[in-house]
Amino acid sequence: MFPIREGFMISGALFTLGVIGVLARRNLLFVLMSIEVMLNAAGMAFVVAGARWRQPDGQVMFLFILAMAAAEVSVGLALVLELYHQFKTLDTDAISRMRG
């Protein structure tokens, strides 16, 4: 029997770490990295599920996630660079001018 329970627990733990990283870190670069962690956690859940039911779909989805993550990071880094130019800081709490 494939250890699906442990697999999901690891993926869940990784996702929670990612969420905590997004909420706790103030540096934008670390926020982006935490988002990557969350994406990978989701990908791992797909892989685990694919292995459990012996289907290739899980790995196909993981490839989609990788492609999407690459695109997201390229846009995200471009924004980070631009923000750094504008504000000379990457502290998300300092960059809070868009408020009601």
Binding site: L23, R26, I95, S96, M98, R99, G100
Partner: peptide, 18 residues
């Protein structure tokens, strides 16, 4: 009320989403 939630703080938005 709604405009008071619009703080501009990214981490608050993330927390609300989560």
């Amino acid at each position: 009320i709604l405009s008071a939630t619009e703080t501009g703080k990214l981490r608050w938005y993330a927390a609300w989403i989560a």
